[in-house]
Amino acid sequence: MVTAATTLAELDRAVSECRACPRLVSWREQVAQTKRASFAGETYWGRPVPGFGPADAALAVVGLAPAAHGGNRTGRMFTGDRSGDVLFQALYNVGLASQPTSVRRDDGLTLRGTRITAPVHCAPPANKPTPAERDRCSVWLATELELLRPTLRAVVVLGAFGWQALLPVLAAAGWVVPRPRPRFAHGAHVVLDGPTELHLLGCYHVSQQNTFTGRLTPAMLEAVLREAKDVAGLG
């Protein structure tokens, strides 16, 4: 699978039309038809969810994949679910989002110098993409990073899955990834040489499993985002 996108707008349109992974296509469309009872009156997006944020972002936030009743419903990353509630509140608190909530695509939210994306753009069953699905989807992330390269200075990776998926994409895009590859950890901070100096920061994912148990607190998340904001030159 290749893409001829030369702008992020073109890339986002191409992403939203992808049908490369039969299992993910079937699942996302099934969820969009059956729906959750609390959203029964809504029309689900039910397609791959593109990245969100300005084309000249200095900071990228990389998650895992859209949630079945979050991004798969609303059509925007981390929008309309509990994980997004935590993430956007933190982005707002550190000055990277225009408002603390994200409930639908047309709610007026804008991001300051920040783009949110994921290595997998379709909602996967049980939130677990297969390695083959991750690898097939990597062309979209690689193209996105290439288009952001002139301005991109830092990446916050939410969770080990995103970290592991991102490193080979960065290496293919020309950044020098150390050997052995740096391991994911909350608070990890690695500086990569390459087309531009790139700061790679690790943060526990904003999943309910982490936020409800206190493994990831709002203060912990905000600390990583503030550090990323600083090294990205968005202070």
Rank of each mutant, 00 (worst) to 15 (best):
R149M: 15
L192R: 02
M77Q: 14
V177N: 05
F161H: 07
L148N: 00
L201Y: 06
R104D: 12
L201A: 06
D85Y: 00
F78H: 14
T74G: 05
V157E: 11
G71W: 04
W175I: 11
V191I: 11
D106I: 07
Q99W: 04
P168V: 01
V190E: 05
G113V: 04
V103I: 14
P150G: 11
F161R: 06
E146I: 02
H186T: 08
H186F: 08
D85I: 00
H199N: 13
P182V: 07
V103T: 15
R82Q: 14
F184T: 00
P124K: 11
A97H: 10
L198P: 00
C203N: 06
L158V: 07
G187W: 09
V120F: 00
R112Q: 14
P178Y: 10
R183T: 09
F184S: 02
L198C: 05
N127R: 14
R179F: 06
P124Q: 12
F184K: 02
G71E: 06
P125I: 12
G159Y: 02
T130H: 04
D85E: 15
G71A: 08
V177S: 02
L170Y: 08
G162E: 01
F88A: 03
R153W: 13
W175N: 07
T130K: 03
S83W: 01
V191G: 00
F184Q: 03
Q164G: 15
R76Q: 12
P131M: 03
F78E: 03
L167N: 01
R104Y: 06
L200D: 02
A160L: 02
T114H: 05
A185S: 14
R76A: 10
L201K: 04
R104M: 09
T110G: 00
E146Q: 15
L167G: 01
C137G: 08
A173S: 15
L166T: 00
L148R: 00
G84M: 11
H121P: 01
T117F: 10
D85F: 01
L198H: 03
L201D: 01
S138Q: 15
F78V: 04
A132F: 12
R181P: 04
A118N: 15
V177Q: 02
G174S: 12
L158G: 06
D135Y: 08
V103N: 09
R112Y: 09
D107A: 08
D81Y: 09
L109E: 06
S83R: 12
R76S: 05
N72Y: 04
D193G: 11
P119E: 10
W175H: 13
P168N: 09
V176F: 04
Q89T: 15
P124R: 09
R179C: 03
S98C: 04
G71R: 05
L170A: 10
